[in-house]
């Protein structure tokens, strides 16, 4: 039962990963006895399951995921939301107006209009149905302020870090409120645009270097350095103003 890779190797579609008594995890497939990769990514094996963490992939909806999407269409039954998935998601009007929803009476655009960003949760999705959304939970609903960063959805776990270490560090360093959509859309709202910008830069760097190790330390260092220079710069301008 050999394994044909070293931990954290970069593999390409069709690479033979293992033979024999192994299970096919994420982004792999098994044909007969042999296990191959299906995407460009980084391999790992845990308890006989071979996983490939994709370096580039689009979002595949999963029930229970929190996502950030954009309203693209209004229909009689509700809103169609672009959540960066292969299919558009549906947010039914009855989710908001409850049982007494009447298209003649209730005004959909006054709740969400085309172009609005919303934070929602996926309640159902499978092969036969397009994703269904809900906003009936605390923290969900229309986005009113903040900035949005889009990254590859498979890198969201990297932004969260081990037990949330990365994301809590960024929140602490920048003082921003950050909402992670599992579809790769991240909403950042902070006290000042500078803080938001800092958080955005950190997230961009994580995306670029997600496949390298020791990332949390490097990001902390970068944020501290940038914060220092920012404060100095603003001090400098204040001094020149008083002069």
């Amino acid at each position: 039962m050999p394994v044909f890779f070293e931990k954290r190797d970069i593999v390409t579609p069709g690479d033979l990963l293992a033979e024999g008594d192994y299970f096919a995890g994420d982004n792999t497939y098994k044909e007969g006895d042999k296990l191959y990769a299906t995407r460009l990514g980084i391999v790992d094996v845990a308890e006989k399951t071979v996983n490939v963490v994709a370096l580039k992939a689009f979002y595949s909806p999963k029930a229970g995921d929190t996502v950030i999407g954009k309203v693209v269409e209004l229909t009689i039954a509700g809103w169609l939301i672009d959540i960066n998935a292969p299919q558009q998601a549906m947010l039914r009007a009855s989710e908001i107006f409850e049982r007494d929803y009447k298209p003649q009476r209730n005004d959909l655009p006054s709740v969400f209009d085309i172009g609005d960003l919303i934070i929602a949760k996926i309640i159902a999705y499978d092969r036969t149905r397009d994703p269904q959304l809900t906003i009936r939970e605390p923290g969900l609903g229309k986005v009113t302020r903040g900035q949005v960063v889009e990254i590859t959805p498979t890198k969201i776990p990297r932004v969260i870090g081990r037990k949330g270490s990365m994301i809590s560090m960024i929140k602490e360093q920048t003082g921003c409120h950050i909402v992670l959509g599992q579809n790769g859309v991240i909403l950042i709202s902070g006290k000042t645009p500078e803080n938001e910008h800092l958080a955005m830069m950190a997230i961009r760097k994580i995306e670029e270097e997600s496949h390298t190790s020791g990332l949390t330390d490097r990001i902390t260092e970068m944020l501290k350095k940038l914060k220092g220079s920012d404060e100095n710069a603003s001090k400098g301008t204040r001094e020149t103003e008083t002069n």
Binding site: P13, R39, A54, A57, F58
Partner: peptide
């Protein structure tokens, strides 16, 4: 196709 993140059996 591989760059778009589309799963493939092989290149």
């Amino acid at each position: 196709l591989a760059d778009a993140g589309i799963p493939m059996k092989d290149l």
